[in-house]
């Protein structure tokens, strides 16, 4: 195949070429890492080499501490994310389609979504303490308001004709909301839940910043004190892989739950 095919916008390329390019990118990154560390271009306490990270992972898998940390972080993220989603999906759908709901929610949401969650941590500690609840609240606050805005946009984009058409088929207002508006929003809701799930992971370290004694964020922060870059990288990779797994799970879920909706 010619180079010009690669450079044409929105044109298909053969699957092997696609895979090859992806592997090339990963290999380059990994190669660069190897070169920097094994080539003694940087000091090991600045950047640990791959085998040190693998060894750190192996040890922590052996004594189960890695799994404990994963579990601690997962339970925080999942609880916070689920609580946020359970509230944000219905409220967002209503906010996008009912002026009254928009009037009630928009000012608060518009204000809250730009507030760095870390700025609220002192207040959260004062109000909720330093336990599991505080960490969950950080994840909740980091995702809820973003979800609300994104889902209200999805709801606002549902075509007026679809709603009007439902009325002419005999639907009342309640049926229009439950049987048309909500299902019509579902693909957009799923896409945005997937996106905000990714954001929830990015709040993990912030959530475990204070008084944590387990969790991947805690593991990273703790390793920083001793400049254990192997453990820091292990934590980073673990979060990345878990994030990738939840992302794939969401893609799968969408395909199973919404087979009628085109995916890309």
């Amino acid at each position: 195949m010619a180079l010009r095919d690669l450079l044409a916008p929105k044109s298909e390329i053969p699957a092997p070429v696609f895979l090859g390019l992806s592997l090339f990118a990963i290999a380059t990154l990994f190669g660069g890492w190897c070169l920097l560390t094994y080539g003694h271009l940087v000091r090991p306490d600045f950047l640990a080499p791959p085998d040190a990270v693998a060894l750190a992972g192996w040890k922590r898998l052996g004594n189960l501490s890695l799994l404990e940390n994963i579990w601690a972080s997962l339970s925080v993220i999942m609880t916070g994310f689920l609580l946020a989603s359970v509230l944000a999906v219905p409220l967002g759908v209503l906010m996008g389609s009912f002026q009254a709901a928009r009037a009630l929610l928009e000012p608060i949401t518009g204000f809250m979504r730009y507030l760095p969650v870390s700025a609220l941590i002192p207040l959260l500690i004062l109000w909720i303490g330093i336990g599991f609840e505080e960490k969950v609240t950080v994840i909740f606050l980091g995702t809820f308001f973003q979800q609300l805005i994104l889902i209200s946009d999805v709801s606002a984009r549902v075509s007026k004709d679809l709603i009007d058409c439902s009325y002419t088929l005999g639907a009342n207002r309640r049926q229009v909301v439950t049987r048309v508006l909500f299902p019509a929003c579902m693909p957009g809701v799923m896409d945005n839940l997937r996106v905000t799930m990714g954001w929830a992971w990015t709040y993990l370290v912030v959530a475990e910043l204070v008084a944590a004694n387990s969790g991947l964020g805690y593991m990273i922060l703790n390793a920083m004190r001793g400049l254990f870059t192997d453990v820091i990288l292990l934590g980073v990779f673990t979060i990345g892989i878990l994030g990738l797994m939840t992302d794939t799970l969401f893609k799968l879920l969408r395909r199973v739950l919404l087979p009628w909706s085109a995916t890309f």
Binding site: D161, L162, C165, W260, S261
Partner: peptide, 14 residues
């Protein structure tokens, strides 16, 4: 009073 619209108004999930 049934209505057919110019835009496509089928429910995509049905």
């Amino acid at each position: 009073r049934g209505m057919v619209f110019q835009s496509y108004t089928l429910f995509p999930w049905l």
